[in-house]
């Protein structure tokens, strides 16, 4: 943590940490404590008086069927995004690990969607699935599927899942490929000499060995789906139709900035903060455990 040899205490270290601490205090800790404080208040409909109500905002949320439905939807959404993008990435990384010629070229072609902003990813997918113009509704109509994500909640959910998973493939692919390439070749050669074919080696050797990466990516993908997909949903569905794609982050935004329910929105923020903190703790506690080869 600290160097064995270090500089003596003076005013200098305080000056050095000052900018970071200042920004943290003003834009992180103060707003977060404001959110906690506001979550204990209820404002009347005209914003004239506020009342301190302890946990009433939270109990209201717990009884709110719309909020609970949004919670369930968020979990479904993140499980689907994590599963879809991680399995795609695992398959691609598994084959990329085998390829000798052109491996770098393949990697380059697969990683760049990382750089596409979520809202742009949303715009691209909403264009491809535009009910009147899009290429996919046109193709789907040939097999008798009527696609309209503006009306059909399940289709809207599927569309945001596709867009969110598409963007995350690049990230998962990079980490899976790095994990596979760090497995000692001698292990794989030993398995091959013992007669294990490629499928067997993948199932019984490579996949178990990269399990820490899988766990790490699960946490990262959950955090991504929970918090970084606002742009995708805002561009594609705006939470609709009939709240079918309103995940928690979108609901905080919507209730606070559109619905102006400050107390309720703050209470939701506080719940989200607890979720992030617990996810971060899980990530830090378990991710550092390395596999011994």
């Amino acid at each position: 943590m600290l160097k064995r040899v270090h500089f003596p205490a003076s005013v200098l270290p305080y000056l050095l940490v000052a900018p970071q601490i200042l920004v943290t205090l003003v834009f992180f800790i103060w707003p977060a404590s404001q959110a906690v404080y506001q979550s204990f208040l209820i404002e009347d409909a005209f914003g004239l008086s506020t009342e301190f109500v302890w946990l009433e905002n939270f109990t209201l949320l717990m009884d709110d069927a719309i909020y609970l439905a949004s919670f369930g939807r968020t979990i479904l959404f993140s499980v689907a995004v994590a599963f879809l993008s991680m399995s795609m990435a695992l398959i691609l990384a598994g084959f990329a690990d085998r390829v000798v010629r052109g491996a770098t070229a393949y990697r380059t072609m697969l990683i760049w969607p990382y750089a596409v902003a979520p809202v742009l990813a949303g715009a691209l997918w909403v264009f491809m699935f535009n009910p009147t113009l899009g290429i996919f509704p046109f193709l789907l109509e040939m097999v008798g599927v009527d696609w309209n994500h503006y009306l059909n909640g399940n289709q809207a959910m599927a569309l945001v899942i596709f867009a969110a998973a598409w963007k995350q493939i690049a990230y998962n692919f990079l980490f899976y490929l790095a994990a596979m390439q760090s497995i000692p070749r001698s292990l794989i050669e030993a398995a091959a000499i013992d007669g294990a074919g490629p499928v067997r080696r993948f199932r019984d050797l490579i996949f178990p060995l990269i399990s820490p990466t899988t766990f790490f990516l699960l946490v990262i993908n959950a955090v991504y789906a929970f918090f970084d997909t606002f742009g995708i949903i805002h561009a594609i569905t705006q939470g609709g139709p009939a709240n079918a794609t309103t995940i928690l982050v979108y609901k905080v935004f919507n209730d606070g900035f559109v619905g102006l329910d400050l107390g309720g929105s703050a209470a939701q923020s506080v719940i989200l903060m607890f979720l992030v903190i617990s996810m971060t703790v899980v990530q830090f506690r378990y991710v550092e455990r390395k596999v011994e080869y």
Binding site: F28, W30, P31, A32, Q34, A35, Q38, F227, D228, F230, V249, V252, F253, G256, F257, L262, S265, A266, S269, L272, M273, V276, I277, T280
Partner: peptide
């Protein structure tokens, strides 16, 4: 631990 999305309003 506090992404901007969870504390936007304050």
């Amino acid at each position: 631990m506090l992404p901007v999305e969870v504390r936007i309003l304050p």
